[in-house]
Simulated assay, not measured.
Amino acid sequence: MRIAITGSGSGIGAATAAALRDAGHDIIGIDLRNADITVDLTDAAARAAAVDAVLERAGGVLDGLVLCAGVGPQVPDPNLVVEINYRATVALLDALLPALRKGENPAAVVVSSVASTQIAWADNPIAKGNEAEAFAQAGDFAGHYAYASSKNAVTVAVRERAVEWGGAGVRLNTVAPGSVETPLLQAGLDDPRYGEAIRNFVAPIGRNGKPEEIASLITYLLSPQAGFVHGAQFVIDGGIDAQTRPTAV
Rank of each mutant, 00 (worst) to 15 (best):
M1K: 09
M1A: 10
R2I: 10
R2M: 09
R2T: 06
R2H: 09
I3D: 00
I3H: 00
I5W: 04
G9P: 00
G9D: 06
I12N: 01
I12P: 00
I12G: 01
G13M: 03
A17W: 00
A18C: 09
R21C: 12
D22T: 12
G24V: 05
I27N: 02
I27V: 07
I27K: 04
I28C: 06
G29N: 01
L32T: 11
L32M: 14
L41T: 02
L41E: 07
L41F: 04
T42D: 13
D43H: 10
A45D: 12
A45F: 14
R47H: 03
R47V: 09
A48R: 01
A50R: 03
V51D: 00
A53T: 02
A53W: 12
V54K: 02
L55T: 12
G60A: 08
G60Q: 03
L65E: 00
V66R: 01
V71H: 02
G72Y: 13
G72E: 11
Q74R: 15
V75R: 10
P76M: 09
D77K: 08
D77M: 05
P78V: 07
L80K: 14
A88I: 04
T89L: 07
L92M: 04
A95K: 01
L96G: 01
L100E: 03
N105M: 10
N105D: 15
A108P: 07
V110G: 01
S112W: 03
S113G: 05
V114Q: 11
V114D: 12
I119G: 03
I119H: 02
A122Q: 05
D123M: 05
D123Q: 09
A127C: 15
K128P: 12
G129Q: 08
E133V: 06
E133L: 13
E133P: 08
E133H: 14
A136Q: 05
Q137E: 15
A138R: 12
G139S: 04
F141D: 11
H144N: 15
A148P: 02
S149Q: 05
K151M: 01
K151W: 01
A153C: 06
V156A: 12
V158W: 00
E160I: 13
R161H: 02
A162H: 04
R171Y: 00
N173S: 04
T174R: 14
T174G: 05
V175S: 06
A176S: 15
S179P: 15
S179Q: 13
V180N: 06
E181W: 07
T182G: 11
D190N: 09
P192D: 03
G195H: 05
E196V: 14
E196I: 15
A197H: 14
A197G: 15
I198T: 10
N200L: 04
F201V: 13
F201P: 11
P204C: 07
I205T: 15
R207K: 08
R207C: 13
G209M: 07
G209A: 03
K210L: 03
K210D: 06
A215G: 09
A215H: 04
L217Y: 02
L217F: 03
L217R: 00
L217G: 07
T219M: 08
S223I: 13
P224Y: 13
A226V: 10
G227A: 11
F228I: 13
F228N: 14
V229G: 14
V229T: 12
Q233F: 09
Q233E: 08
F234R: 03
I236H: 05
I236N: 07
D237A: 08
G238S: 15
I240C: 14
I240K: 12
D241Q: 15
T244A: 15
R245W: 10
V249F: 11
